[in-house]
Design a protein around this nucleic acid. Structure first.
Lengths: 345, 345
DNA sequence: ACGGCATTCCAAAGCGCTTTGACAAGTGTG
DNA sequence: CACACTTGTCAAAGCGCTTTGGAATGCCGT
């Protein structure tokens, strides 16, 4: 069923039917009702491609997952982000396109997405410091919003970020206030802007607390369970092992806990764990008694909000940029306690 | 840059340029080379929508994530699946569209995807028993492949599945052979076909081993970490608690381990855990000493293979259906051991 | 009765591509 | 040298929609 068929069926012109369905005022309410009903009855939906050709918009948003070819990792965060974004998209009649690409082909992918007119805008994931993608997107004229920020980029752009510096600063201070002086940071990959911010929050609080910054207590890597486990184990072998861990993700934190459990160390008593928590649906940290003491911020909510920001941006490409900074929420869990030897224990 | 511009720039007709780029034989190699070079120089990519309109194909594959509105869960498996599928798609010039939808709107989504011509085919995820989606897709004529199978569907369809029955049967037998007589099954949602198969494999091996089937040792639910934890805890409170757990996913298994650790039970000694492992990139179970004894099958590989199957199917919609059954691979990990009180321990 | 003004509808152009059918130019044959 | 073929190219139609610029209709006041 297409426009031509539907309109001849109704004895109307294509113009009128099209206008009726798209809510234009030039058509009487009576005929509009008739058209809408007929469209529903015959399950007519305008052909996306034809509509796109005629309007010049694809009504589609692109997400590029860049997969470093060596590791082939897909962060589970992505799924939750897309669920949030997808909700917004479908509410506004947008489709969502996902492209998987090796990191070195990323620029070509953006260019192609634009040249082919495949998408009206894109979400930039996992921005790096001085991320070259932003300038590229500006140059080719593809609207975008950034999930996170890119330190060093001078030109304005729209972003939504969690205050990572603050969260990790608070977390570090919190652990220090419990008497911990050897606090380890199990960070994400420090090519990512957010990881850099997290480290700086951590370091500044260490300094503020008068604690030494020990590179042996800092690690950076892909935030897998195995990574948390391996790093925790390595650090616990040190002459002066940490008494507290600060993890970049609840998945890492799970790995750290495994290392502690395996060594017979009691989490929250012998060794503390605090973590950032993206509120992934498959790794709940809620309930009456949260497992981990955490600074949390829902990545699903971020997806929903960023999607809205992008849609607004596509509608008004020259509107001033919107930037949003969310504060992570503190949740006290069972994984932290006073440092061993401090006060009562 | 579009076809018209490019062709007038070359002093050729649009026809010739189009044919040159699409590899038609009617154009001399000399002009083809000239055209290809110019296209590259001017970063010309044909407009996807126009191309789609003209050809009738969208060169796009749909994936529908149906999110039960109550829970809003997104299985991390999805990310790995898409990474695998995405690789195949981009190799064949296909785009990937993801639609998030509440379960009750799923049928409408498929219909709309077809009516709008948005996709050339789709991948059906998480099939249920007697899944109504397959008949719907057949009816509306949207090519598809199924990740898994749907018991009860008589008409042929293309699928790729892991031999879940066998894997869980083997796993149960394995645990029984270690002397375990109280073996718990922490299953996925038994609305899903794969979960039903897993249970049947589990039960048949229990029977074969002469062990009783105790519904108190079986649970079904969304395979989150918290679910594994909660169920394990509940079962360990039973008068006759299990000495072994069989988990549906490595994420559940992590929850079970947490419950054991918390109770001071040694994994692989006091209580064993075996699990199915989808080889998620963020939850590696590999290495020299795998954490869990597992039956594994890469969901990423499944994605890549199913994508290929779908593309083939789109090319030849009336070709006989292809069905593929993969066997899960056994991996001995540290999480299983003889039942307490059995032989040496 | 007639011009003026909304109101309601339409024919046709155009979006950027593929593809059909036709046409020059070049090649070989008798 | 005329003939039939191949080879390389093109103009134009068409994919299904939106949108521009009219045109017909009905209603008003004068």
């Amino acid at each position: 069923m297409n426009l031509k068929e539907l309109s001849s069926l109704l004895g109307l012109s294509q113009t009128t039917v099209s206008r009726a369905l798209n809510g234009y005022p030039e058509v009487s309410e009576k005929t509009r009702a008739r058209v809408v009903q007929a469209a529903q009855a015959h399950a007519y939906s305008p052909n996306t491609r034809a509509q796109g050709l005629a309007t010049g918009h694809s009504k589609c948003i692109g997400h590029v997952i860049s997969v470093s070819d060596s590791a082939e990792m897909v962060n589970p965060i992505f799924g939750d982000f897309m669920a949030g974004a997808g909700e917004t998209y479908s509410a506004h009649g947008y489709d969502m396109m996902v492209t998987r690409v090796g990191t070195q082909d990323e620029a070509d992918t953006y260019r192609s997405l634009k040249a082919r007119g495949a998408v009206d805008g894109i979400v930039v994931h996992a921005p790096r410091r001085n991320d070259a993608r932003l300038a590229l997107l500006d140059k080719i004229g593809l609207p975008y919003v950034v999930h996170g920020r890119s330190t060093g980029i001078k030109t304005p752009y729209s972003w939504l970020d969690v205050n990572n510096t603050r969260a990790f600063s608070e977390a570090t201070s919190y652990l220090a206030s419990l008497g911990h002086s050897r606090i380890a940071l199990i960070n994400g990959q420090e090519t990512m802007d957010f990881a850099i911010r997290r480290r700086s929050g951590y370091e500044s609080s260490l300094r503020f607390a008068g604690l030494s910054i020990d590179s042996a207590l800092m690690s950076t890597g892909e935030m897998t369970e195995a990574y948390g486990y391996t790093q925790a184990n390595a650090m616990l072998e040190l002459d002066q092992p940490p008494t507290a861990f600060l993890a970049a993700s609840i998945i890492c934190a799970a790995g750290i806990r495994r290392a502690l459990d395996e060594r017979g160390l009691r989490v929250g008593q012998d060794v503390s764990i605090a973590t950032f928590d993206d509120c992934l649906s498959y790794f709940g940290n809620g309930g009456d008694q949260p497992v981990f003491t955490a600074w949390q911020s829902s990545v699903r909510a971020a997806g929903a909000t960023l999607a809205q920001m992008l849609i607004d941006r596509i509608r008004a490409p020259h509107a001033p940029h919107i930037t949003t900074l969310w504060e992570a929420e503190f949740v006290l869990g069972a994984s932290t306690g006073s440092a061993p030897g401090t006060s009562k224990d």
